[in-house]
């Protein structure tokens, strides 16, 4: 059976691919392509964190009774990532390569170390604690969220 860890790790790699697509377009000064790739990246990243904050984390917190632990740390890091995403978006719109690459670099490292904590520890804990709810949770995490509902 599919696990939360495999499913969500796969989504992290999809976000990485979108990030690389923007970087490659910026390197070629293909600004239209970069803007479109950035929209995909932004959407995928925001949707992933929204899925975690609205479905996965509440299920973990309800089951373990821990709401001020790792999920709270992850929420804080999501907020930092959203701030960097916004700064990168402004730099891209202004076609400021240096500012974009500085914000993108910071976002990349922030995201990668965040993903690593989730992939190595939190998702494994979720698989362990939420084993009985997997059949219900996985389709919800798989299908995603209509982002307009969250705006």
């Amino acid at each position: 059976m599919e696990s939360i860890r495999n499913l969500m790790t796969g989504k992290h790699r999809q976000c990485d691919d979108h990030f690389v697509a923007v970087e490659q377009a910026v390197a070629r000064s293909a600004w239209g392509e970069a803007a479109s790739a950035f929209n995909h990246f932004r959407h995928a990243t925001l949707q992933h964190s929204a899925l975690e904050e609205s479905i996965l984390f509440p299920a973990f917190e309800a089951h373990t009774g821990i709401s001020m632990g790792p999920t709270q740390v992850m929420r804080g890091e999501h907020a930092q990532m959203r701030a960097l995403l916004a700064a990168a978006e402004i730099a891209l719109a202004a076609r400021d390569v240096d500012d974009y690459s500085g914000n993108a670099e910071t976002l990349l490292i922030m995201t990668q170390q965040h993903n690593m904590k989730e992939e190595n520890m939190l998702y494994a804990m979720c698989d362990q604690h939420l084993a009985l709810q997997l059949a219900e949770l996985l389709p919800q995490l798989e299908s995603g969220i209509n982002m307009r509902e969250l705006m």
């Binding site: 907020a79 930092q80 701030a83 960097l84 700064a87 240096d98 500012d99 690459s101 500085g102 914000n103 670099e105 910071t106 490292i109 922030m110």
Partner: peptide, 30 residues
């Protein structure tokens, strides 16, 4: 990679989400 990121992270936490820290490439110029 480590030093600019740690400085950014520390400043970002210090700014409590209200003051944006300078990005890594403004901390050590490329």
């Amino acid at each position: 990679k480590i030093v600019p990121f740690l400085v950014w992270l520390h400043l970002q936490n210090l700014g409590q989400g209200r003051v944006m820290a300078p990005n890594m490439k403004k901390i050590i110029a490329e």
